[in-house]
Design a protein around this nucleic acid. Structure first.
Length: 493
RNA sequence: GGCGGGUUGGCGGAGAGGUUACGCAGCGGAUUGCAAAUCCGUGAAGACCGGUUCGAUUCCGGUACCCGCCUCCA
C-alpha cells in the first residue's frame, strides 16, 4: 500500500503520515463562527478536509477515522447581531435570539456544505455545549501557573510557554516589535491573550470561578479537541489565516494544560481564496456566499471541481472562466458514470479500488489536481474498453474498470453529485423529446424547400434555452447543456 | 517593519536535472445548407540576474513583483 505523505506546517516538511492509532485516526478542523451564511472562502477548508477525510477512510477504513469540526456559537459578532435584532424590535430575550440565530445559521451551513458534496464530520460540537470543559481547562492552566485572573478576565501567560511562536515561525520579541494593538491595562505582557472574559447582564454568560463570563475564542478548540480526541491526535486543520494567533494559542493552551500530551501531530493549512485575482472583500464588491452561487444556478459539483483544480496549499482564484471549464469537464464524466450505473457497479471502499494514478496523486499531499486528471483518464479508459477501441493490456474487465472509476469519483466527492447531475440531464432530455420531433419535421421540410429561416430561428431559441442542437448525418440530437433552462424552454411555443 | 507563501505557454495547472504533462481556449482538417457538437491533427512556456553542472524551467544565491498573516476573517 502506498503511504500517505502530508505537508506538516509544524515541521515545514512533507512527511510520511503514520497515525498514532490506525484503528482510530483522529482529525480536528476549525469550523465556522455561526453568525451568517458561509462565504465562498469558508468552503475551501470544508472541501479540502473532506477529501482528506475520504482518503483516510479509504486507507484506514470508514469506521476507523474520527473527524471533528466545531461550531463557534459564542462570539462577539453573534452577540452584536443578536443585539441588533433586539434593537430592531425582536421581543425575545437575548439568549433566545442568540440560540435561534445560531440554530438557523447551522442549518444553512449544513445545507450549503451538503450541496458541495461534503460528508458530515463524525462530530460537530457546539462551543456552548462544552463550556464546562473550557472552564476546567482554564482552571488547570491557572493552577499550573500558565494563566492568571485579573479584573474578571483570565489571561494566558505567553512567556510561560517557551515554544510559543514555533508553528508560525515567529519569536515573541518580534511580535511585540510589530504589534499594533493597544495593550489592555490588565495584561502582564502585551502578548498575553484572553481565556475568559466577563459578561455583563446584557451578554450571554456562564458562572465560573472568576465570575459570570464567556470563553475566549482559542480555548474553545483546545477544550473540544481534548474532550473528543484526547491529549494527542493526528491532524489539525484550518485556514492559513488561523495559523497565528489562533492555532499558536491552541498549542500553547493544550501543551501547558496537558504537558504529557502531544496535541496535534500534523498541522495542515489551506491557503486563501481570491475572486478574479483579488482578495474577496465586501468593500471590493466581490464578496459572495456559497448560497449566492447555488442560487445563481452554479451547482455544487462545479464549485467543488474548481476548488480541487488548485492544490490546497496555494492561493485559489475563483473565476468565471474556471467555472465554465468545470461545467464542461464534469459533463465529460457523465458518460463513464452512466456505464457504471448501467452495469450496476458501485464505488469500492478500499484504497486499492482507486485508479492507480489517483492512488499516487492523492497520497502525495493530496494532489487533487493530479487526481482529477487521473480520474478523467480512468473515465476515458472505461469508455474505450466499452467501445472496444481499447484492448486491455491487463486482463481487466470492464466491470473492474467501472469500479475503479466509480471509486475515484467517490474519493473526490463527486459520485453523488454527478448522479444527480446525470438525473437532471435525463429529466431534461425527456422534456426535449416532444421538441425533438417538431424540429426534425421542420428540418426535413427545410431541406426540401431550401428555406432554413424557420429552422434557424427555432435553433436559436433552443440554444438560448441552453440546449445543444446537434445535427449530423446520423440524425438530430437535442442535448441539454450546462445552462439548460427548462422554464425558458416551456415559454417557447 | 517582522514572518510566511508564490511567480510555468492565451488561461488553469503538474511532474521530472537531459525524453510529449494534462485540461480549456486557439489554429488546420473531416463533417455540415450555415453553425454547434464530435473526431483527427497542431503551434505555444517556465519573472529577472548570477552560481553549481557536460546540461536547469527543475538545485543554490540575489533582485523585482504579487499575495497572506502580525487586528477573535477559512
Amino acid at each position: 500500500m502506498t503511504g500517505i505523505r502530508l505537508y506538516n506546517t509544524r515541521t515545514r516538511t512533507k512527511e510520511a503520515f503514520a497515525p498514532l492509532d490506525p484503528e482510530n485516526v483522529r482529525m480536528y478542523v476549525c469550523g465556522p463562527t455561526v453568525y451568517d451564511r458561509a462565504h465562498l472562502g469558508n468552503a475551501r477548508p470544508v472541501i479540502v478536509f473532506d477529501v482528506l477525510y475520504r482518503l483516510l477512510r479509504h486507507v484506514y477504513g470508514a469506521d476507523h477515522v474520527t473527524y471533528v469540526r466545531n461550531f463557534t456559537d459564542v462570539d462577539d459578532k453573534i452577540n452584536a447581531r443578536a443585539a441588533e435584532m433586539k434593537a430592531a424590535g425582536d421581543g425575545r430575550t437575548l439568549t433566545a435570539i442568540i440560540r435561534s440565530l445560531t440554530d438557523e445559521t447551522i442549518g444553512w451551513y449544513h445545507a450549503d456544505m451538503d450541496a458541495l458534496g461534503a460528508l458530515r464530520p463524525t462530530m460537530e460540537p457546539r462551543a456552548t455545549d462544552w463550556i464546562g470543559a473550557m472552564i476546567a481547562m482554564i482552571a488547570e492552566l491557572v493552577a499550573r501557573g500558565h494563566a492568571y485572573a485579573k479584573e474578571g478576565h483570565v489571561l494566558f501567560r505567553v512567556r510561560s510557554y517557551k515554544d510559543y511562536g514555533r508553528l508560525s515561525g515567529r519569536s515573541v520579541d518580534d511580535m511585540i516589535a510589530g504589534a499594533r494593538v493597544e495593550v489592555a491595562p490588565f495584561k502582564e505582557d502585551p502578548m498575553d491573550f484572553v481565556l475568559w472574559k466577563p459578561s455583563d447582564a446584557d451578554l450571554p454568560g456562564w458562572e465560573s470561578p472568576w465570575g459570570r463570563g464567556r470563553p475566549g475564542w482559542h480555548i474553545e478548540c483546545s477544550a473540544m479537541a481534548h474532550e473528543l480526541l484526547g491529549e494527542s491526535f493526528d491532524i489539525h486543520g484550518g485556514g492559513i489565516d488561523l495559523q497565528f494567533p489562533h492555532h499558536e494559542n491552541e498549542i500553547a493552551q493544550s501543551a501547558c494544560a496537558h504537558p504529557g500530551g502531544g496535541f496535534a501531530k500534523v498541522w495542515m493549512h489551506n491557503e486563501m481564496l481570491m475572486i478574479e485575482g483579488r482578495k474577496m472583500s465586501k468593500s471590493l464588491g466581490n464578496f459572495f456566499t456559497v448560497r449566492d452561487l447555488l442560487d445563481r444556478g452554479i451547482p455544487g459539483e462545479v464549485i467543488r471541481f474548481v476548488f480541487l483544480q488548485t492544490h490546497y496549499s496555494k492561493p485559489m482564484d475563483w473565476t468565471e472562466a474556471k467555472r465554465q471549464e468545470a461545467e464542461k469537464r464534469l459533463d465529460a464524466l457523465l458518460p463513464p458514470l452512466g456505464v457504471t450505473i448501467e452495469l450496476g457497479v458501485l464505488p469500492g471502499t478500499a484504497f486499492d479500488d482507486l485508479p492507480q494514478g489517483m492512488q499516487l496523486t492523492l497520497s502525495d499531499d493530496m494532489n487533487t489536481k493530479g487526481a482529477i486528471d487521473a480520474l478523467e483518464s480512468s473515465g476515458a479508459l472505461l469508455i474505450g474498453l466499452c467501445s472496444g477501441q481499447v484492448i486491455p493490456s491487463t486482463p481487466e474487465t470492464i466491470a473492474g474498470q467501472a469500479k475503479r472509476f466509480a471509486t475515484g469519483l467517490s474519493a473526490l466527492g463527486f459520485y453523488e453529485l454527478l448522479r444527480m447531475r446525470r438525473a437532471l440531464r435525463q429529466d431534461a432530455r425527456q422534456l426535449l423529446d416532444e421538441r425533438h420531433l417538431d424540429f426534425v419535421i421542420a428540418y426535413e421540410l427545410a431541406k426540401q424547400t431550401k428555406d432554413f429561416s424557420k429552422v434557424d430561428r427555432r435553433r436559436t431559441q433552443l440554444t438560448d434555452a441552453g440546449v445543444e442542437v446537434r445535427i449530423s448525418k446520423d440524425g438530430i440530437e437535442l442535448v441539454p447543456g450546462p445552462n439548460f433552462d427548462p422554464a425558458k424552454l416551456e415559454s417557447l411555443k
